[in-house]
Structures are given as structure tokens and as C-alpha cells.
Design a protein around this nucleic acid. Structure first.
Length: 300
DNA sequence: CACGTTACATCCGAACTCCC
DNA sequence: GGGAGTTCGGATGTAACGTG
């Protein structure tokens, strides 16, 4: 059974359950149907089905549980649907590209900088099998590239870039690395233990993007006032899960976030320019004010 | 009774090696 | 360089026991 069949099978299980809860029997029927449709053999034993559920949880962050009272399987965590959808999407794209080998004359792919996706499968494999990885990493901030040994926990997408959340053996702490900055990648044979207390969703609960907390300050109540026009956009596409609307009228939109003040949050706030006023906390208001002043001096 | 867990044997594809 | 043979590790299935 090829790796692609495994991926297709797990995709089929997820898609089936996304349509609604299912008994094991009807999942097996769906797999048999898909096998006929695509000419693959996706039919499996109960044991492999169990293993697939574990894999789906660790790879796609989708939890599938058995509902004892109703006697069916169902997807439990729908809140983080975006992340798992994106991972599924990436998988499908990769599969399509993999199966297109030999067709390069007929495919004209968009030119773009590598996002590090070539390591996607390998890293997922390492996360799933709890294998340490060795990477050569070229930081944005340093000229020299460095060798790192990581225990990978999670792949996360943020603003069209992919990041790996991993425990850095040498630094002795949890770090985030951009896939596009990884120049050399290999999977070691060393197995690590996935920490029971690490819950990916919880880890980034109070973070804006992929930086957990670089200021060392506790979670802040950040109050922001947007122009009425920009407010419409912010309402339809909230900045953060914790976003609460305080005031919403023709003068503007005031919102509150419970969030760490990080570098990437400040960059986001600055990108809204004159459409945004930071009200609280005071240190953030001051920091943004200073950065805007600095920006202005370049034009004087 | 149906699912969950653990242990172990088996199978198969991928990678490696060797030879022509 | 590539085809045949070999090795190895990961994926799968079977079975036995646990659990609620």
C-alpha cells in the first residue's frame, strides 16, 4: 500500500465525517466506493482505521471521537477548521503535483519563491513518527546559517508562509522556524516523546501569529479604534479569536483583544496606518506612536 | 457488545548494492 | 546507466485482552 493511498484514505475519512457523523460501517462503505472510483485499494481493517484516527489527529489537528450513545464517529473540534482545511488543501496540492511527474511540458506553474513546501511531507512524517530532525537554518537576522536539532510538534500556516513549531534541543526551548528558511533537512533515527501537556491550539491561543510571546509581558487587553470604513473589514475578518466589539457606530469601530504584544502584532497594527488608533495598553500606544514618528523622519 | 489497547507476525515498497 | 537481487523499515492485519 503506497503512501498516497494512505493519504487518500485519510482524506476520504475526513471528508466523509465532515458531511456528518458516520458509523464505522458507512465509513467502510464510503472507502469501498472511493476505491472503485479511483482504482485504488482504500479498504482497511478496524485496526488500521484506529491508527488512521490517531494520525489524523496528529497531522491535521482533527479529533474524531466515537459517540457511545449514538453509536457513530464524529469530528469534535470544528473551531480550528481553518488550519486543518489548509493542511488538507496543501496535501491535495502536493498529491496533484506528485502525480503530475512527466507532465511538466503541459503544466505552467506560477513563478514564486519557494515556501519550503518541499520539506512538507518529510516534516509531517517526522511529527507523526516522533522523529528528531536536523536542519540548517538561515535566519533573517543573522548572516551565518546554523545547524539545529529539533523535535517537531506542529506545522502552522500564517500569512501564506509555513512554520514549524519545534523543541530546540540546544536552546532548550520551544521555537518557531519558517520552512522557507530551512536549507538542509534530514530526519534522524532518534525518537522523541511528544509532551502530553503541549496542546497546539492552546499554545497560540493568545498569540497574534507565530510568535508566542517575545516581549516577556503577560497577556494584554489591547483596545483599538478603527475608522468606520476599516472597521467593516475588521468585523468580517477579525484580527484574533479573542476579538470583542466595544463600540460600533458611524464614527468607528472599537475592539478589544486579549493577546500578547508581539513584533508581528505591532507590524500588523502599523499596516493599518491612519485608519487605526491604539488606545490601550499605554506602552503599546507609545511604541506605535514612536514607530510612526520614526517613519515620518525619512520623508523630511 | 462494540470499541480501545497492546503485542507481534507479515507484507510490501523504497532504497541500496551489485553487476553487466 | 539501468536492471536484478537484497535489505530494511514502515504499514498493515490478527489475535488476545481490557473497558465501559
Amino acid at each position: 500500500m503506497s503512501k498516497r493511498e494512505t493519504l487518500m484514505r485519510q482524506n476520504a475519512i475526513i471528508n466523509k465525517l465532515k458531511k456528518g457523523p458516520s458509523t464505522l460501517k458507512s465509513i467502510n462503505e464510503e472507502l469501498a466506493l472511493q476505491s472503485d472510483l479511483h482504482g485504488y485499494n482504500l479498504k482497511i481493517s478496524n485496526k488500521t482505521f484506529r491508527r488512521d484516527l490517531d494520525d489524523i489527529l496528529s497531522l491535521y489537528q482533527i479529533q474524531i471521537d466515537y459517540n457511545t450513545s449514538n453509536k457513530y464517529y464524529e469530528i469534535i473540534n470544528q473551531e480550528d477548521e481553518n488550519l486543518s482545511d489548509r493542511i488538507l488543501d496543501a496535501f491535495n496540492t502536493l498529491n496533484a503535483l506528485n502525480s503530475s511527474v512527466g507532465y511538466s511540458d503541459y503544466l505552467d506553474l506560477e513563478e514564486r519563491k519557494s515556501t519550503g513546501n518541499q520539506n512538507f511531507h518529510g516534516i509531517l512524517h517526522a511529527i507523526k513518527n516522533r522523529k528528531q530532525i536536523n536542519i540548517t537554518y538561515q535566519s533573517y537576522w543573522q548572516d551565518e546559517s546554523s545547524l539545529k536539532t529539533l523535535q517537531p510538534y506542529l506545522l502552522k500556516e500564517f500569512k501564506n508562509r509555513w512554520y514549524i513549531i519545534a523543541y530546540d534541543i540546544n536552546k532548550n526551548e520551544l521555537r518557531t522556524y519558517g520552512l522557507d528558511r530551512i536549507t538542509v533537512f534530514d530526519i534522524s533515527k532518534k525518537i522523541f516523546k511528544y509532551p502530553a501537556n503541549f496542546i497546539p491550539k492552546e499554545h497560540f491561543k493568545n498569540s497574534f501569529g507565530i510568535i508566542k510571546n517575545d516581549s516577556g509581558k503577560p497577556v494584554q487587553e489591547v483596545v483599538l479604534r478603527f475608522s468606520a470604513q476599516q472597521g467593516k473589514y475588521i468585523k468580517s475578518l477579525p484580527l484574533h479569536l479573542s476579538q470583542q466589539i466595544l463600540i460600533d457606530n458611524e464614527e468607528g469601530l472599537t475592539i478589544k483583544l486579549n493577546i500578547y504584544v508581539t513584533f508581528d502584532l505591532e507590524m500588523e497594527l502599523l499596516s493599518h496606518g491612519a485608519n487605526l488608533e491604539v488606545l490601550e495598553p499605554a506602552f503599546l500606544r507609545e511604541s506605535i506612536k514612536q514607530k510612526l514618528k520614526d517613519a515620518l523622519t525619512a520623508y523630511q
